Simulated assay, not measured.
Amino acid sequence: MLRKLLLSVAVIYTLALIVVTFINLDGVPSLGSSFDDKIYHFLAYAGLAGLWITFFKQRHKKQTLLLVFVIVVLFGVLLEVIQHQLNQNRTYDTYDLLANCFGVVIGTLIATRIDIIKLK
C-alpha cells in the first residue's frame, strides 16, 4: 500500500511540475538571493528524482535506476526547452537547465543512499 501511495505522489508531483513549468509564476516568495529561480529549479528536480528513484529502487536493478535518472534528466531538459513555445512569458535558460540536472543528481544520490522508508 505504501508503494502505491509513493507512486501516486510521484505522478501527482510530476504533473504539478509540468503545470508549474508552463504557467506564469508571479508572486513566488523570494529567498533573498539573486538566483532564487535556480534554487527552485534545483529543489524541484531533486524532489522529482528522489520520488521516482525511491519508487523504483526497492524492486529493480541498478540499470533501471540509471534509466530512471536519464529519463528524469531528459524530462527536465525537454520542459526547459519547450516552455517558451507554450508560454511567451517563459524563456529558455541554460542555468535553469543546469540547476534541473544538478537537482536530479543530488536527488538521485540522496534517494539511493538513504532508506527513508522501507517499501513493502
Rank of each mutant, 00 (worst) to 15 (best):
R3F: 11
L5F: 09
L7H: 02
L7D: 02
L7G: 00
L7F: 11
S8N: 06
V9W: 02
V11E: 04
V11D: 02
I12A: 11
I12C: 07
Y13E: 08
Y13P: 03
Y13Q: 09
L15G: 14
A16Q: 03
A16C: 10
A16I: 13
A16F: 13
A16H: 04
L17H: 11
L17T: 11
I18Q: 06
I18T: 15
V20Q: 01
V20Y: 02
T21E: 09
T21Y: 07
F22S: 09
F22P: 09
F22K: 13
I23S: 08
I23Q: 01
N24R: 09
L25M: 13
D26M: 00
G27D: 01
G27K: 10
G27E: 08
G27H: 05
V28I: 12
P29N: 08
P29T: 04
S30K: 14
S30F: 07
L31N: 04
L31W: 03
G32R: 06
G32M: 06
S33G: 12
S33R: 11
S34I: 11
F35D: 13
F35Y: 14
D36K: 09
D37Q: 09
D37F: 03
D37W: 06
I39M: 11
I39L: 13
I39Q: 10
Y40G: 01
H41I: 11
L43H: 00
A44G: 10
Y45R: 07
A46W: 05
A46Q: 05
L48R: 03
A49Y: 05
A49D: 02
G50E: 01
G50V: 00
T54P: 03
F55R: 03
F56V: 05
K57Y: 06
Q58E: 15
Q58Y: 11
R59I: 00
H60A: 12
H60S: 14
H60M: 12
H60N: 15
K61Y: 00
K61S: 15
Q63N: 13
T64Q: 08
T64F: 01
L65F: 05
L65R: 01
L65T: 00
L67H: 14
L67Q: 09
V68W: 05
F69N: 04
V70L: 15
I71V: 15
I71P: 06
V73L: 15
G76W: 09
G76Q: 12
L78H: 04
L78T: 14
L79K: 08
L79W: 04
L79N: 15
V81S: 03
I82P: 08
I82E: 03
I82N: 06
Q83K: 10
Q83G: 03
H84K: 02
H84L: 03
H84V: 03
Q85T: 08
Q85F: 15
L86G: 12
N89F: 13
N89C: 02
R90M: 12
T91I: 10
Y92L: 13
Y95W: 13
D96T: 00
D96P: 07
L97P: 06
A99Y: 00
N100E: 07
N100K: 02
F102K: 00
G103H: 06
V104Y: 04
I106Q: 05
G107E: 03
G107M: 09
G107N: 06
T108M: 07
L109P: 00
T112K: 12
T112I: 09
T112M: 10
I114L: 14
I114M: 12
D115V: 02
I116K: 01
I117P: 02
I117M: 13
K118S: 13
K118W: 01
K118C: 09
L119I: 03
L119A: 04
K120T: 08
K120P: 14
